[in-house]
Nucleic acid binder design. Structure first.
Lengths: 346, 346
DNA sequence: CTGTTAGCGCTTTCAC
DNA sequence: GTGAAAGCGCTAACAG
């Protein structure tokens, strides 16, 4: 039934460079050269052909682990995300993976769950595994030190979440501009009383969005109803909690709410629906990120678009550049507002 | 400005076992033993303490690559997903990662995008990197061969998507039961004319769901309006396409539609809304998976719950078991129906 | 209890 | 153009 030789242990099945060399009647190093695209030339055409033939006849598969030990490169790039359940990060990962793929690199992904200890642990694991580089999507203020120190060992780029006062290269969005867009949109619709459901302060995106938003509120003389807390993590439940808090604490409700990300907006939406407060008739709602599902909510969510895919691509390119020894330059992308059904004129 | 010693190359900064040994005045192998939790005992308490002290004074970090070369274990488990954008898979990954973490393993994640060539490539990369095991969430019929052959090298478990006629261990759900649940639910609500928006045939989940659904349709004497095509991939756009197809081809519309997953249901919902066909008033809609956002759609989606987190956990445990040499036994979880607003009595 | 001796599979000088 | 030899950092016999 099974005609192949039975391997005694799991790995005996794997053919090594030596096996190929022996069968091809050449020295292992010749095989190594023949198979290294950067050294095709140094091997006689005919020997190379023979070697390649033997190699795939035997089903030779190079051992990246051994190669990594010698060369220091493992062909692996680590990606640290805060929460894979946030559909905003998956396009970033897509973007990174797609870019890396073209260079034969494979991503290794881990989740920090916005927990500092976990983050430190993950970096340790990744460095232990000698990833060639790391893209951190999950940076929080408290993680700056470990990230910077890890970057002495392998290049690190920050994507999607910036960090203040750091020298680490970043690919991010202009969050202040995003906050301003949200406020300007609402102001243009005639809203005078507005509120923000804030994300955690130690994820630099959020204070920046808040600042941008508030700057326009002030400039245009709007009134900002403050919610006396901010989300622990930018998730649905926290959006829910903050929305409830807003409803309970404010005597005079705002006519528009800016949630610092779409997930929180979803939470807010749920609370509003449950209390029969209509969106957008009674209150307008603006989210942030334009996650894939945003347009399919009811009402479709007005939101600030974060070009996550593009951020991922750029971050991938940046890592590739760093690996090639090129210096990096921070990249800041511009946000744009996607107006949908959840906001309307008062 | 920068007070630490400047490394000449990236890796010179990394302390090796030898460095620790030298500084501690012992032989490298002693350090190796002292640091290996499974061999604490074989080293004198006092030496061990000294070694450990020196180790973290120097900031020693074991090199998994070197260890992997020697021991054959890299402490890494590959996860192949079809599409990270499908929020149904992230809980599975969560589950796997959480289970692995307890054993110090790190997942390496790649996306096949439901493309066979890509899948083959990913497996190759992973084996090249000597992952200790692989969890495949993305299995399609065409991938069976490569998966089985890869499993000769590293243990593979299938999770979330079963495969027909294979000996690979699987952690899946009883999809037929799920299809039956959907149909029974609709029948109980008095629906007589129903339709299915089918997922691709080569992902075994879908024909099984279809079969379960149809079996109840037949048994209860309902009428199934057939849609003359099935989705290429189980995504929003395809759900949209099939729903449009259904509307165009059927003279007598069904009163209830069963979408083979929630993403497709979202697509169907969009088409219905756009045509002002009310859900659930005009037509009831049932999805599958109970993805995190399902309850936040409007109307909240009635769906068949897939315990993805649990599937992930079990798959993680199964891999752990296989790595420990234990034989595995297939696991089939039971689905349950979550009744929400998108379905109602005719 | 600890040191010695071999490599794991591959790349990389350095010779020829 | 190819072979020989050394060694990446670590672990695993085997001695002592």
């Amino acid at each position: 039934m099974n005609s192949k030789q039975i391997p005694t242990d799991r790995w005996s099945g794997s053919v090594t460079l030596n096996d190929v060399a022996r069968k091809a009647g050449v020295h292992p190093s010749t095989v190594s050269r023949a198979l290294d695209p950067a050294k095709h030339l140094r091997v006689k055409e005919s020997t190379r052909e023979r070697i390649i033939e033997v190699a795939d006849e035997l089903g030779y598969r190079p051992d990246m682990v051994a190669r990594g030990l010698k060369s220091g490169k493992t062909g692996t790039v680590g990606i640290v995300a805060a929460d894979l359940g946030n559909t905003f990060v998956t396009p970033i990962i897509h973007g990174i993976a797609a870019t890396l793929e073209s260079s034969g690199l494979l991503p290794t992904i881990a989740e920090s769950q916005d927990d500092h200890a976990r983050m430190a642990n993950i970096l340790d694991h990744m460095l232990s595994r000698r990833v060639d580089g790391i893209v951190a999507l999950a940076a929080r203020a408290a993680d700056r030190k470990v990230l910077e120190s890890a970057s002495q060992i392998a290049p690190i780029v920050l994507a999607g979440r910036p960090l203040d006062r750091t020298t680490l290269p970043q690919v991010v969005q202009d969050n202040e501009a995003g906050g301003r867009l949200a406020a300007e949109h609402l102001a243009a619709l005639g809203h005078r009383r507005v509120a923000q459901l804030r994300g955690p302060d130690d994820v630099a995106n959020f204070p920046r969005r808040a600042a941008g938003f508030t700057s326009v509120v002030d400039a245009m003389g709007l009134v900002e109803v403050t919610v006396p807390d901010r989300a622990e993590r930018p998730v649905v439940e926290e959006g829910q909690r903050l929305m409830e808090l807003l409803l309970e604490t404010s005597i005079d409700l705002p006519t528009a709410v800016f949630a610092h990300n779409d997930l929180m907006a979803v939470g807010a939406l749920a609370v509003l629906r449950q209390r029969s407060i209509r969106v957008p008739d009674d209150v307008s709602l603006v989210g942030y990120n334009d996650m894939p599902m945003a347009g399919h909510l009811t009402p479709p969510l007005t939101t600030v678009r974060y070009q996550s895919l593009e951020v991922g691509r750029r971050a991938g390119e940046m890592i590739l550049g760093l690996l090639a020894g090129k210096p990096s330059e921070n990249i800041t992308l511009a946000p744009s507002l996607v107006s949908r059904g959840s906001s309307r004129r008062v």
